[in-house]
């Protein structure tokens, strides 16, 4: 087993961001985070105070999303949301980048937007969500560089509400861009321990998932057979497979699909299975 069950749990931000979430679910989330010793619970701002109370004195952080899930609110609003969340007990902040500005190449605005949150966070960890499914690789690289320049601590792949989840390709690219000292959080569509291990192998230092319990429990099976870790078809984990014309800008979608034509694994890309 590449990492221990306990070490895997320590990398997980135990996440619940659905709009219909009730307090009972937040309580369950916190209880599970304590039982499994996850890194944090990742929640919407309205639940921060309650979660902080439940997790008081524990090693589990309270991670709050900001400008979520579109990233299209004003910097002042993101900063206010950050400040208030931290006042109520958040110890980490996952903000969504201004995706439109990044695609417009309005880099000053992107940078200042992040800086506003970093400043409001007052030394607490800030992760910047790029929403990679809306970007091509050059834009992802630029988003990473701007996040690093603005003083963020992590770059993060996705919100889980966008067109794509985390893929090893994206994590690898982000890790290569930010270097070894900055954190890379993979999030979105991580449902099994195999997904988790692939992303860790690609360079992720934190995993955002609502399937934390299933991942950790499933990973216990790895102790009984190496067969679980046999490689899958390469297309399964490729972002181009996830591309969707209905959810992505046309040029982004086509950029992903054009990669398939020159892909070394194209012979295996026959049926969708």
């Amino acid at each position: 087993m590449p990492v221990t069950v306990e070490a895997l749990a320590k990398l997980i931000d135990h996440t619940r961001l659905k709009p219909e979430t009730k307090r009972a679910k937040i309580q369950e989330l916190c209880e599970e985070a304590l039982a499994y010793e996850f890194a944090s619970v990742c929640i919407n701002p309205v639940h921060v105070e309650y979660a902080a109370e439940l997790l008081k004195g524990s090693s589990v952080d309270v991670c709050c999303v900001v400008g979520f899930p579109l990233g299209a609110t004003m910097s002042e609003v993101k900063a206010f949301e950050t400040k208030e969340s931290i006042r109520k007990g958040a110890t980490e902040v996952d903000m969504v980048i201004n995706v439109g500005a990044l695609r417009d190449e309005n880099y000053d605005l992107v940078r200042s937007d992040i800086e506003a949150v970093v400043e409001a966070a007052d030394g607490k960890i800030v992760k910047v969500i790029l929403e990679t499914g809306l970007l091509i690789d050059d834009q992802k690289r630029k988003g990473c560089i701007l996040s690093k320049e603005a003083g963020a601590h992590f770059v993060k792949t996705s919100t889980g509400f966008g067109p794509m989840g985390a893929t090893p390709d994206d994590v690898r690219l982000m890790r290569k861009t930010v270097g070894s000292k900055m954190g890379v959080k993979a999030a979105g569509g991580i449902r099994s321990f195999k997904d988790a291990l692939r992303l860790i192998d690609a360079g992720a230092t934190r995993l955002g998932t609502s399937s934390g319990v299933a991942i950790v429990e499933g990973y216990r099976w790895a102790g009984y057979s190496d067969a679980w870790l046999e490689p899958d078809k390469p297309c399964w984990t490729c972002p181009s497979r996830q591309a969707s014309l209905g959810k992505q800008p046309k040029e982004v979608y086509l950029w992903y699909k054009e990669r398939c034509v020159t892909c070394p694994h194209r012979e295996q890309n026959i049926f969708n299975d």
Binding site: K194, E230, K233
Partner: peptide, 13 residues
Amino acid sequence: GSPVLVDRDRTEG
């Protein structure tokens, strides 16, 4: 996919 999805076409493992 319980406990994890494996490639149904592979014979290895």
